[in-house]
Structures are given as structure tokens and as C-alpha cells.
Nucleic acid binder design. Structure first.
Length: 213
DNA sequence: CCTATGATGATCT
DNA sequence: GATCATCATAGGT
């Protein structure tokens, strides 16, 4: 469904806005990952906003650390983190610079490059599962910490870029609590998705794990 | 469809 | 040492 989309690249100004404006506006946009084997493209269907140091759910809530430094930098750059010992997740930094806000790219529909994505996501049972979840999306697009701090504004040789695509009608955009976020961060309905899209990941509430012995 | 659980290691306190 | 913006798998409904 990606053929025939508006492929105009998004500019810096798109990301240099408050994260709660940018996050829902990213739905329907096309993220392009350029790999040595060719491009892999995903139409975004689910995102979450993380609002910097004022947000208990954000990695920046307790201030700047080695891991989250990119969030304090310019809008439009990729913040990639490693978690659960196995997985990577991709955010795009939003404005204003220094607020340390970002949008977690949670799910999407893979178009161009699906053959490449299937090789990396060999356990996916169907194409809807290729990028159904943030770590699955990162795996499908071959994204790891080598891309942390990378500029996602289109330019020659860019590893990442975001194209205009086709935003859904506003009445098809839903919002609710963020997946896996607990405590005081759970009250904010800062997860955004396209209603009824089969590539949106299932919601899961925060679940504290029992300590192992 | 659903819920439960182990995997696995960087990061932060 | 505890936590973690998760996933794959197994098994029940």
C-alpha cells in the first residue's frame, strides 16, 4: 500500500514541535531505512510520546545519563536504546531542543523491502507481524545502537529518513495509555494508533515481574 | 483468542 | 542488585 504515496521528505521543522503534536502526526508517515541490501520502508501505524523530564514514563525523567543523551539533542535525530538484553527500540527526538522528548515508533506496515524484513523477522507468522511492536519494527529495519544519534532528516546517504506518506483522517486516530508504562506515567493517554489497523500491537499494562531467587 | 513465563545483559542506583 | 518503553513459545479457552 506504499506505492503512490507522497514521498516528499519531512523537514526539521516537522520534528521541532511539541512531542504531543508530532506523535499523532507521524501516523501514516513512511520511515525509510537504507541498508546495503536495499531500502526497507514502513508505514507507521502506532507510536508513543515521551515528554522528557516532566514525564515519569520517560527515560529522561531522572535527568541526563549516558544512554539518553541523544534525547537532549536536535529534533529529527534517532534515539535507539537496547533493552531486556535482546532488543532495540527506535525513537525520533522532538522539539524544543533540550526538552529531551521523543516518539517511540511502535508498529507499522512494511511495504518496500518486505523480503529483507522477512529474513530478519524469520519467526513472524505473517507479514502483519513483521513490525507489530517496537522491537520487531527495529529488527525488521535492521536498527541497532549504531544508529543512535543518527539524523533522520532526508539527505544524500542518509541511513534513515521519513517521508510524507498519507496521514489517516483525524477520526481514525485513537489514543490511550502507553504500553508497558507503570506508575505515575500510566495516567497519560500518549499512545496513538490508527483505528482497526491489523499491524497495531496489542496493548499490555505494566506488569512487575516477580523476583527470581 | 487469551495468559504465563523464561530469555538475556546494559543501565542506573 | 533491581529494573527494564519486549518477544517467542507453550498451553488453555
Amino acid at each position: 500500500m506504499i506505492d503512490g504515496e507522497d514521498r516528499t521528505p519531512l523537514t526539521r521543522d516537522f520534528f521541532d514541535r511539541p512531542v504531543l503534536e508530532v506523535a499523532p502526526d507521524l501516523l501514516g508517515r513512511i520511515l525509510v531505512r537504507s541498508t546495503p541490501d536495499g531500502p526497507i520502508e514502513v508505514r507507521l501505524t502506532e507510536v508513543e510520546a515521551y515528554a522528557g523530564e516532566i514525564d515519569p514514563g520517560s527515560h529522561a525523567f531522572r535527568g541526563r545519563t549516558r544512554r539518553n543523551g541523544v534525547m537532549y539533542g536536535p529534533p529529527g535525530h534517532a534515539y535507539v536504546y537496547f533493552t531486556y538484553g535482546m532488543w532495540h527500540c527506535l525513537n525520533l527526538v522532538c522539539g524544543p531542543e533540550g526538552m529531551a522528548s521523543g516518539v517511540l515508533l511502535r508498529a507499522g506496515d512494511i511495504g518496500t523491502g518486505a523480503d529483507l524484513a522477512r529474513k530478519r523477522r524469520f519467526s513472524a507468522r505473517n507479514d502483519r507481524e513483521l513490525a507489530k511492536g517496537p522491537a520487531r519494527l527495529a529488527t525488521a529495519l535492521d536498527i541497532d545502537r549504531a544508529l543512535d544519534g543518527t539524523d533522520a532528516i532526508a539527505r544524500p546517504g542518509a541511513h534513515l529518513s521519513v517521508l510524507h506518506g498519507t496521514p489517516p483522517p483525524r477520526d481514525q486516530v485513537r489514543s490511550g495509555p502507553r504500553t508497558g508504562v507503570g506508575g505515575d506515567g500510566a495516567v497519560h493517554p500518549w499512545r496513538f494508533w490508527i483505528d482497526g489497523d491489523p499491524t497495531v500491537s496489542p496493548y499490555r499494562a505494566h506488569a512487575p515481574r516477580r523476583r527470581s531467587t
